[in-house]
């Protein structure tokens, strides 16, 4: 039972860490090209929901369906392949590979998918230009500012034109101005490319860049799509 036309949907997810319930009947859906903010207080289960949706964490019960396929029915290798080809990720701290240059970082998802270096880095540079960080292509992550690093991370998340980008507090480590620019560029690029974005944030100003929001409280969320 998933909302009609949804690309990715979770239904009645439960997940417990030790004796602590992280998700307690959470449901969620996102349509192709839609930007949905997942909001809620710290410890409410936002990140666990995101990890379940992305197939990183397996829920104790409930289903996650992506493009009509149930993630729990797929093998680990199948889920890993899906994350490489269809999903992109942005975290609070860019999590770029420090030994690689910025353009090599952005090209990485393409390289992992078997694209040759020259072609991969060419595409990576185009995305870096869109994110206004092509001038730091040859630098290593340690040599760029927090805002630049995060834009490099956004370019990396979008470079393989995924169907869904998961962004977990993508502006959490940035000041207001840099955070806004990252959100503008992330949502604009995703909308242009038709990529859906699942945006975990506790900041309303960041959530205001979304098309719709879902609130997680005590492991449950109110997704109005499900209420219809």
């Amino acid at each position: 039972m998933t909302p009609a036309g949804s690309l990715l949907a979770a239904h009645d997810l439960h997940k417990t860490y030790g004796s602590t319930p992280a998700l307690d009947g959470a449901s969620f859906s996102v349509h192709p090209g839609e930007v949905v903010a997942v909001m809620g207080p710290s410890g409410s289960g936002k990140s666990t929901l995101l990890h379940c949706l992305a197939g990183i964490v397996t829920p104790d019960s409930g289903t996650v369906t992506y493009g009509g396929r149930e993630l729990s029915a797929m093998s680990d290798a199948g889920r890993s392949a899906l994350r490489r080809t269809d999903f992109g990720f942005v975290f609070q701290f860019g999590q770029l590979v420090p030994e690689l240059t910025c353009v090599e970082n952005v090209a990485l998802p393409l390289r992992l998918n078997g694209v040759k270096r020259k072609e991969a880095e060419g595409t990576a540079l185009e995305w870096m230009a869109r994110l206004e960080v092509d001038d730091v292509a040859a630098k290593r992550p340690g040599e760029v500012s927090g805002g630049q690093g995060q834009r490099v991370a956004v370019a990396r998340a979008l470079v393989a034109t995924p169907k869904v980008v998961f962004a977990d507090e993508p502006t959490g480590a940035l000041d207001s101005l840099n955070g806004e620019r990252v959100m503008e560029l992330l949502t604009e690029s995703a909308r242009t490319a038709g990529t859906a974005v699942v945006l975990v944030t506790h900041e309303a100003r960041v959530a205001a860049y979304s098309d719709r929001d879902v609130v997680v409280r005590d492991g449950r969320c109110r997704d109005l799509e499900y209420a219809v």
Binding site: A204, R205, A207, A208, Y209, S210, D211, D213, V215, R222
Partner: peptide
């Protein structure tokens, strides 16, 4: 909750 949605709706328009 209803108030929260209304606030966010206006924040989206302003953004």
């Amino acid at each position: 909750d209803a108030q929260r949605s209304e606030h966010l709706r206006l924040m989206r328009i302003l953004t």
